[in-house]
C-alpha cells in the first residue's frame, strides 16, 4: 500500500466513509444519551442504599465481564432484538453501566462526610444535599467515568458491525476479509481519531465544569 492508494481509496469512497462515520457517531451518541438518562439517576439513587448499591454494582460488574462479541451474539438470538441497532444499542448501554454507574456512585458517595454532616445539621433535605452538595462535589469523578464511557463506546461500537451495524467497524472487518489494507487503515485511523477528538473535547469541557472552589488553592 502506498500513500497514493490510501488517498485514492478515501477519495473514491468519500460518501461511504461519511455514511459509516455518521452511523458510528450516531450509535455512540445514542448510547451515551441513553446511558446518561439511565445510569446517572440510578447512581444517585443508589447512594441512599448500601445494600442495593452492592447488588446493582455486582450486576454491572458481571455484564462488564462478558466479552462484547458474546454479548452482541446473545442479543441477536433474542426475539425482538435481532440483528442491528436495537441489539447493539442495548449491549453498549449495558457495558456503559459499569464505568458510568460506578463513578456516579463513587463520586457522590465519597464526598467529605463532614460537609454532609454540616449540611444535614443545618436542615438541608436529602434531595437538597444530593443536588447541591453530593452531585457538584462528585462531578470530577462522575465526569471521569463519563469520559471513559464515551471512549469505550466509540471503540466497542466497531464490534457491532458484526451484527449488522453499517459503521466504521465494517472497514476493519471487510478490510481484513478482503485483504484490503487501504480499507483497513482508513477504518482503524478514523475510529482512533474520533475517540481521541471526543476525549480531548470532553477533557476541555471537564475543566470548565469542575466547581471553581475545588480548583482554587491558596
Amino acid at each position: 500500500m502506498t500513500w497514493a492508494d490510501l488517498f485514492n481509496f478515501v477519495t473514491g469512497n468519500a460518501s461511504t466513509i461519511r455514511r459509516y462515520s455518521e452511523t458510528h457517531f450516531i450509535l455512540v451518541l445514542e448510547t451515551v444519551i441513553v446511558s446518561l438518562i439511565l445510569w446517572v439517576p440510578l447512581g444517585l439513587l443508589l447512594s441512599k442504599s448500601d445494600k442495593w448499591a452492592g447488588r446493582v454494582m455486582a450486576l454491572a460488574n458481571l455484564i462488564f465481564c462478558i466479552p462484547s462479541l458474546s454479548l452482541f451474539a446473545i442479543f441477536v438470538t433474542i426475539p425482538g432484538l435481532g440483528l442491528g441497532r436495537r441489539s447493539s444499542l442495548l449491549a453498549l448501554v449495558l457495558y456503559a453501566m459499569m464505568p458510568l454507574l460506578r463513578n456516579v456512585y463513587d463520586g457522590v458517595k465519597n464526598v467529605d462526610r463532614s460537609v454532609i454532616e454540616a449540611a444535614k445539621g443545618m436542615g438541608m433535605s436529602e434531595a437538597g444535599i444530593i443536588r447541591e452538595i453530593r452531585f457538584p462535589l462528585g462531578l470530577p469523578v462522575i465526569f471521569a467515568g463519563f469520559r471513559i464511557t464515551v471512549v469505550m463506546t466509540t471503540g466497542m461500537a466497531t464490534i457491532a458491525s458484526f451484527i449488522g451495524e453499517q459503521n466504521l467497524g465494517r472497514f476493519i472487518t471487510n478490510g481484513m476479509v478482503r485483504n484490503n489494507t487501504e480499507m483497513l487503515v482508513t477504518g482503524a485511523v478514523l475510529i482512533s481519531v474520533i475517540a481521541v477528538v471526543l476525549d480531548t473535547i470532553l477533557g476541555l469541557l471537564e475543566k470548565g465544569l469542575i466547581p471553581r472552589g475545588l480548583r482554587l488553592r491558596r
Partner: peptide, 11 residues
C-alpha cells in the same frame, strides 16, 4: 450547628 471539621461547602 457547628462541628469540629466545620464542613464548609468547598464549592
Amino acid at each position: 450547628y457547628v462541628i469540629q471539621q466545620i464542613g464548609l461547602l468547598p464549592h
